[in-house]
Amino acid sequence: MQQIINFFIRNKNFLVFLLLFLVSLALTIQSHSYHKSKFINSANFLTGGIYETVSSVDRYFELKKENEILLNENNRLKSLMFNNQDSLSRDSISPGNYSLKQALVIKNTYSSTNNFLTLNKGTSDNVGIDYGVITSNGVVGIIDNVSGGYARVLSILNTTSRINAQLKKSDHFGTLTWDGASPLTVQLIDIPKQAPLSAGDTIITGGRSAIFPKGIPVGTVKSFDLDETENYYTVHINLFNDMTNVGHVYVIENNDREEIEALQNEQ
């Protein structure tokens, strides 16, 4: 017994090192599997508060640009309203029961391989896990963690992100992923070989999950090639959204989600 205690005392530095190193490795591995990184995230009282204070100063420098984006969006919506009496035509988002909330990005990263954003809305504003996040230009990501006043968004620039997307001109769909290389392009995988692809085609969200409605713009086709199985395309997409510069966003809640999920889980 004496020897065991002596051993611990003699090697206490190494043992503490080993313990802490293993703890951080565990946290790392956890963060690489989707929807499990519960403990270490920036959507908490302390870091959220600090980020919000700083961004409230930062925001003033972006006002001009934000105004321009808002004007452009208003312009587009007005022209839709005046010119397009039949608003259920091809450009409109598919009908459903969605409610939107606006929020502000208080922290954004895009340089690592697993990127997250932090929003200034949380459970007290009825924002919950698995709500979609978009801007007027297109998709940003999915909320994966919330606290009282803040929410963390799994960005589309995250190698663990999987979002359903499809071609605008046909109904061939695939999964939106990111290879971690450039923050301007994402990859759409599992598009069948039969799909009529050409460079410049528009990609929209597919609406096959209960998160995003169908028809939210994602980007345009930059290039495409067949994967190893020679049956599916891997499509490189230029994003409409400049992910390096995101300010105001909309959080989408699908009011029918519980019903849809209950139905899907029934079998």
Partner: peptide
């Protein structure tokens, strides 16, 4: 060693990076 771990962990919380900074710092 413990303070280094704490330092890395704080950076991790701010950056949403799991435990990578903590691991590298402790090392």
């Amino acid at each position: 060693i413990f303070l280094s771990f704490l330092l890395g962990l704080f950076v991790d919380i701010f950056l949403d990076s799991g435990g990578v900074h903590a691991a590298a710092s402790v090392f």
